[in-house]
Design a protein around this nucleic acid. Structure first.
Lengths: 165, 165
DNA sequence: TCTAACGTTCAAATATTTCTGAAAGTTTCA
DNA sequence: TGAAACTTTCAGAAATATTTGAACGTTAGA
């Protein structure tokens, strides 16, 4: 496969993957482009390559920086800002799981916890509801703990874990 | 907290959680309702409780059955169809991870594999691209393997794993 | 201070996804 | 077979999410 074809394919695949996971397509595509870039890129260059508006690129670059997976850089003698994505897949995975944990798992655990003191006339329904939410709470907490551990661990730990599985 | 308040809150939280993960809100809400229900429910009852149209309920029930997390049932002497969601959180987690693996991880591994024979003039870019996609491939394959193992395992295995972590 | 070169914002336009409801299809049973 | 009781489908409507681009803000250096 020719490089340019592969490049497009990769950017598209990354965009689709992102959509499946609640990340918008433009954001995922910019990330893909930066992952592939051999040098940091300016907003201008990204606009050009992905045929996106200035506003869109700016907005999504900021979102990517919020996620901690893209960094802003400055080149000496250049006024423009440049952007780059870390190339370390391991670090990327850790960072993404850290953020999703914070943004999505923590809130649900929070809510589930509040259901422990539900009251009501329909004893059966209340009992089943408490059982359900408490099971969900336990499970989520365990997953939460695992991800926390994972996102602080190093690659060696992960490979050792894989061996045990 | 009063049961009815908790019920609404749970249905809403589940809906929001779903949206974050690329599952549509109505689908997640129907699932939440069935999770809480002490008896299987008919489409009619779901429409009523969630104030949704017949078409919407029908469509999303089918999607939930596709995911394998809702089952159709028949009551003796009743013409109507009834629906229920498994109450076992462990089974639910396994089923969801099995489906997401199949729908999302498998395709990306597929695509990444195709990049191994990329050619092009810019040697540096090609080399870096191959490195990147091969790293992603390795990592995804490992995660894929883990999830496969997980989705076939029993709860005991999972708890033992948690201990080791 | 002024201005060119950039970065940021946001209201409006577009695109995408989801939802509705009525019509069409199916099943059961008298 | 006929018709009541359901379920399914799908075109158009509504709701959401994304994108644009032009106006506004900021900064560095002349």
């Amino acid at each position: 496969m020719e490089y340019n074809e592969a490049k497009d394919k990769f950017i598209n695949a990354w965009g689709t993957l992102g959509s499946n996971w609640g990340i918008n397509k433009a954001m995922a595509q910019i990330h893909a482009l930066l992952l592939m870039a051999t040098e940091p890129m300016s907003a201008e260059e990204i606009m050009e390559e992905l045929q996106m508006s200035r506003g869109n690129v700016n907005m999504n670059l900021r979102a990517l920086m919020d996620w901690g997976i893209v960094k802003k850089e400055h080149k000496v003698g250049e006024r423009k800002e440049f952007f780059s994505a870390g190339k370390d897949v391991w670090e990327l995975a850790k960072q993404v799981s850290r953020e999703r944990r914070r943004r999505e798992i923590e809130p649900i655990i929070q809510v589930l916890g509040e259901f422990q003191n539900v009251t009501g006339d329909d004893k059966k329904a209340v009992a089943e509801f408490k059982k359900l939410t408490s099971d969900l709470y336990d499970f989520s907490s365990k997953v939460d703990g695992m991800i926390e551990k994972f996102s602080k661990s190093d690659q060696t730990w992960f490979y050792k874990l894989l061996m045990k599985i």
